[in-house]
């Protein structure tokens, strides 16, 4: 007896026949491919810049999309879907940091990432790497979401799980510190 005979289409991945087992996917293959093409690079940039580890960003980007497809993601448009994707990625990053590691994420030398990125195009961007290295991971997350992705405080609260009221203060402090680091050439 096979699973196919017990549950029709289970091996065909038909989520419609598995109500309550797997969430209904709103996207078909082509829709997902288009969404992936529009969002994957910015998600990778977020993960790479916040974690300062391009290899980890590769892994977490893939995992975030797989979880996104397996979960019951928001049906109200691409903006909400994108925000949900960033939330998954943020949780994956947090889980990664919580796991015991042989070396801290903050021990990863910034030049590894800078060398890979070839960021010599702009002075401020060249300085951004060392400056980011001196920020706490949470501050890096907040700064990237606010100033690279342009999310509002409310959206950042949804993505990070922090209280909306505290985002303003945390972001203000992080921005002030980052500006000071950028003006001083990335040195503390």
């Amino acid at each position: 007896m096979s699973w196919e005979s017990i549950i029709p289409n289970v091996l065909a991945g038909d989520s419609q026949s598995l109500a309550g087992t797997a969430p209904v996917a709103a996207m078909d293959n082509e829709q997902f491919a288009a969404f992936y093409a529009r969002s994957a690079r910015s998600l990778w940039a977020y993960l790479a810049r916040v974690s300062r580890d391009p290899g980890l960003a590769d892994d977490l980007t893939q995992e975030a999309y797989v979880r996104f497809l397996c979960a019951a993601h928001p049906q109200d448009g691409e903006v909400a879907a994108r925000r949900y994707l960033f939330k998954i990625a943020t949780n994956l990053l947090r889980d990664h940091w919580r796991r015991p590691q042989s070396s801290s994420i903050d021990d990863v030398p910034e030049h590894t990432f800078a060398a890979a990125s070839g960021e010599t195009h702009s002075d401020s961007v060249a300085i951004l790497g060392p400056a980011m290295a001196q920020m706490r991971p949470r501050d890096r997350q907040l700064l990237w979401l606010a100033y690279a992705e342009g999310y509002s405080h409310h959206e950042i609260a949804q993505i990070t799980g922090l209280a909306s009221a505290s985002i303003r203060l945390l972001l203000f402090r992080a921005r002030r510190k980052m500006a000071r680091l950028l003006r001083s050439g990335g040195e503390a």
Partner: peptide, 24 residues
């Protein structure tokens, strides 16, 4: 800060060699 992050985002987003969407 916004200027630096926006340029960094643009440059960083050019870097990854992404896995094909079909594989994911």
């Amino acid at each position: 800060v916004t200027g630096s992050f926006q340029v960094s985002r643009r440059l960083t987003a050019e870097l990854p060699r992404l896995e094909p969407a079909g594989a994911i």
